[in-house]
Design a protein around this nucleic acid. Sequence first.
DNA 1: GTACATGCAAATTATTTGCAACAGG
DNA 2: CCTGTTGCAAATAATTTGCATGTAC
Lengths: 134, 134
Amino acid sequence: MPKVRNTKQRQIILRVLKGTNTHPTADWLYQKVKDKIPNISLGTVYRNLGVLKEQELIQELRHAGSQSRYDGNPQPHYHFFCLDCGRVEDVILPYSEQMDQDFQSQMPEYAVFGHKTEFYGCCPGCKKRKQEEE
Amino acid sequence: MPKVRNTKQRQIILRVLKGTNTHPTADWLYQKVKDKIPNISLGTVYRNLGVLKEQELIQELRHAGSQSRYDGNPQPHYHFFCLDCGRVEDVILPYSEQMDQDFQSQMPEYAVFGHKTEFYGCCPGCKKRKQEEE
DNA sequence: GTACATGCAAATTATTTGCAACAGG
DNA sequence: CCTGTTGCAAATAATTTGCATGTAC
């Protein structure tokens, strides 16, 4: 495993990501970080997100039909995806160790490290907007 | 919503997908379907997977660092991703309605339609191979 | 016959990579 | 200094799309 240097670019990318709860895309981060480092390149953002994920300081979220999103909170927790506006939010439910235990007892030949759960539906804003349209 | 025709291409794509439990990629399906329809194009496979998903006859699975995979079983159920070999398998655990109810009571302003859960770890084959390498 | 669907190829989107110059420890 | 990292641009991978033609109903 190669050594990792503490570059200004990486520091700022991490700080910006930790400072938002919007679960942004690489491109959104690129735009934000450009305010601090105007000549940073998108490639650098991607490379650093890769490194930070490797170091388990952040996590990557993937969902059908959109680019990857990143979460500055590396702790396992659940997410909600709004099918209408694409917003991603944290879910206020504790991680279920029980699920992993249930998995383990049903499928004992497997080694399970954990699970990811994403809820989907309609966020409060979109729900309201839809009701008003009727 | 446009009318959907029952084309030979779509029939075969669906049949091949329903006939495997490997949760294949679009490209894998394309290769398989070519045995039946030699001059089918990859674009047609993608377009039909889109239509079938729309009709809720299949579902799409997405995971960091790999292309989309498709599942011929539209019923909500959980999946296991092997971090070593990339294999995707169905999990023998019932869908937890309870989770959706818990979500609903914690976050009542949201409309929740369901959730997806993917376990990750090491499949029996890879687990065994790793043990032997030690 | 009408419109949805196809094959083909080109386009688009998201992400990765080669490389020479730069900079952290 | 040494080697990881950057900016830039070009390359790749995955998926989507325009269009003339084909075909289901």
